[in-house]
Design a protein around this nucleic acid. Sequence first.
RNA 1: GCCCCCAUCGUCUAGCGGUCCAGGACGCCGCCCUUUCAAGGCGGUAGCACGGGUUCGAACCCCGUUGGGGGCACCA
Length: 519
Amino acid sequence: MHDRGARDPGQHGGRRRPDVHGRRPMTAPSRPVKTRFCPSPTGLVHVGAMRTALFNWAHARHTGGTFVFRIEDTDAARDSEESYRHLLDCMRWLGMEWDEGPEVGGPNGPYRQSERAEVYRDVAGKLLASGHAYESFSTNEEVDARRRAAGQDPKLGYDNADRHLTDAQKQAFRDEGRAPVLRLAMPDEDVVWTDLVRGEVRFAAGSVPDFVLMRGNGAPLYPFTNPVDDALMGITDVLRGEDLLPSTPRQIALYRALTDIGVAQGTPRFGHLPLVFGDGNKKLSKRDPQSNFDVYRERGFLPEGLINYLALLGWAIADDRDVFSPAELVEAFDVTRVSANPARFDLKKAEAINATHLRALPVEEFLARVTPYLATAGLVAEPPTEEQARVLEAIAPLAQERMIVLSDAVGLLGFLFTEDVEIEPAAAEKQLGAGAGEVLDAAVAALQELPEWTTPAIETALKEALVEGLGRKPRQAFGPVRVAVSGRTVSPPLYESMELLGRDRTLARLAAARATATG
RNA sequence: GCCCCCAUCGUCUAGCGGUCCAGGACGCCGCCCUUUCAAGGCGGUAGCACGGGUUCGAACCCCGUUGGGGGCACCA
């Protein structure tokens, strides 16, 4: 039962692009699957990043493999401790526990690149000694000038000119005070790989210049640290955004060099996930408010709702269903069936999915999750008083099916926990205009002397007074009353709400609304 | 400019050569239920970018065009 890790994920379904031999373009993994999520702790947590994390996590869990969490904080200028902590918090909130990583440990630590300087220095030394990497002294200006002199586009970048410098030449540069960067010598052949989501991808030989592994000051760069750590940590499957696809040839070249010197045990499989777009036709940038993961959390998206929606960005569980639990996602996830085209983040759909999860929650669970939002808004005590708890319990099932996110409860239920209600201007405009006075008067008259203050009694009294008495359509009869009592056009069921509110507050609100009603 | 990726309803997708005059979901529209708003149920709207091949047969395979996107740092 634990052989899933050795199973070829491709066998779960067909494949988009069989190769010429009719085989699925995936090599069977020689080791159990090991994936990783390796964000940089800079600024806000990005929904696109969390989607990437989710796919890596789901792939590892589905195959019975291992999920590694690594922090790529090699850029001291941009990284922050706060961002780092927040990242861990977001991962845990979504329920994506990691098997190796910060605060959890593991055999290949440390898991923060800022603590791995020696590792990089060591590997860089080996690469240099073995001839896979070399010291390069050219400045950007010099490269640029050479390209122009040759009648070429300077955008072509570095020209590999320093590959074969003699010791004397190197010494001459050093004497000038120059500190060399370390570059990897790219192989002189096409780089081809079979992408887990895109099939065969090929970059022609010579199209990727020798790139920098280490700065002149000895600081390692991302294109170097990332594959080195993946190799040392035994990562088998790299699932990342399509924006990184152009850098994959470099990674693969480095991997081959690392394998050659015994640091890596082969090259991992790559899967380039579709980008996540925002409203425009552009990938969701960090600047885009839509990309901020926190806003969804704060609004009260459920972790399972957000996971569900995020998984839908490039993947489908079945042709006739798109609501599922995290466990179902893990059970069904197949990375080879991830779509290659960009996905737009559609808030409306995300909300619809979340609302479905919200309604599916057992009432007690719903109550437990919603209460903190009411407490934060100052509507109930923390924990709620006995009386508040009674009201909450009664209203929860009725509120649950009227909400999209947990924070909706503040607006929807606030009226039950305050003395006076604040009426929304738009609601007043719609329901407290001409004709409302008559309705409110009749409602007050009917309710004032009601022998018992119960939902059925209120219902009967109101229907008699407003529908039969005034001859109004229910829609017109109850609209003004609802707004007077709850302050909004959408509320929990009216009679139940009134019962919970009590006779005094109900009558007071009807009277208050009557005073402002224009007719 | 160069390199690369992508191309099915407005959006996310199913579709892996015949079962597709293309299925689901969100949105939108309508109806029903409820003598209450919402929710729910039912129905409707709308799509294979274009042009060439290959094939008895193409949304599915190949080529091209067009369109969109991404990347081209001693950032990650």
